[in-house]
């Protein structure tokens, strides 16, 4: 059975879709069988970031409504054999996302893939709760700013209350992915620092992704940033985060900090 991961944040624009694509691609590069599922019905974007927008025929809603088979709606990535996309519908109503339908789709994806990565819509309404409902673990994407941190805190509370795992009395594994970290602003002190955010959210750190124009460039050419420019700092950070997700222990480095500071984070267990 595969792992179901939800990528969520509460707040919009923090990089859920970018992170879903980048981590999905990084896992697929390790020959894991991966499907990325777009739950943002009506505002889909994952197909663009994955460069598959012109190949969408059937989508998640079609499968839930029984208008298409799951195998018909899955789009295989052109660069990686083991990477698939299940797109969201851009035109349909998001109320068509029924709990039973979602459960059925996630159930069958779990049997066929090693990793099912669900890209959650922003907010805490039905779309977001539906995306997290059947997850085994969650990646909480947070930017170093107070509003994002508070929204993430809210989402963590929901992950502990509204998921199948939580309702069974189990604890949901949660990982913090700190995105858009700006070394320049960190140095000048006008950004929340990493320790404070970890203290507020008190969940383990999966990785720190530096702010970079590589991300924009990659999404413009329709490639996950880990594939577009695999030598960039951003791509390397995502690859490390993906490795931590598989259980490897790699020390987290804070982008742009002096060497003497690394030691502080060496001891921290990341995943």
């Amino acid at each position: 059975m595969g792992n179901v991961i939800v990528v969520t944040s509460g707040k919009g624009g923090v990089g859920k879709t970018t992170s879903t694509a980048a981590i999905g691609a990084a896992l697929a590069q390790r020959n894991e069988k991966v499907v990325v599922v777009d739950f943002d019905v009506g505002l889909r974007n994952l197909d663009l970031v994955m460069g598959a927008e012109r190949r969408v025929v059937f989508d998640l809603i079609n499968v839930i409504q029984g208008e298409a088979k799951l195998s018909q709606s899955l789009i295989r990535d052109k660069r990686l054999e083991t990477l698939f996309l299940l797109p969201a519908s851009q035109t349909r109503d998001k109320d068509k996302l029924t709990p039973e339908g979602v459960e059925r789709v996630i159930g069958s994806l779990k049997k066929a893939f090693d990793w099912v990565i669900c890209d959650s819509p922003a907010g805490i309404e039905s779309g977001a709760t539906m995306a997290m409902r059947h997850a085994d673990a969650a990646i909480v994407v947070t930017n170093p700013e107070v509003s994002s941190v508070r929204d993430s805190d809210r989402i963590i509370g929901l992950l502990d209350a509204k998921t199948v795992k939580a309702e069974r009395g189990e604890t949901m594994e949660k990982h913090l992915l700190l995105n858009r970290y700006d070394p320049g602003r960190a140095a000048s002190g006008d950004m929340l620092n990493v320790d404070d955010m970890l203290e507020i959210l008190s969940i383990p750190l999966l990785g720190i992704i530096p702010e970079s124009t590589d991300v924009l460039r990659a999404s413009n050419i329709g490639a996950p940033v880990t594939l577009a420019n695999s030598s960039s700092a951003t791509a390397r950070a995502y690859v490390e985060a993906a490795r931590r997700l598989t259980g490897e222990t790699i020390p987290v480095t804070v982008p742009g900090e002096k060497r003497s500071f690394f030691g502080k984070f060496f001891g921290r267990k990341a995943a």
Partner: peptide, 26 residues
């Protein structure tokens, strides 16, 4: 024994002890 997260409210008639933090918005 867990943090009280944003959006959560903890209501009790007696004393409350939180081993953790009470988040902004909680």
């Amino acid at each position: 024994t867990q943090p009280v997260r944003s959006g959560q409210s903890l209501i009790s008639e007696g004393d409350v002890t939180v081993v953790g933090s009470v988040a902004s918005g909680a």
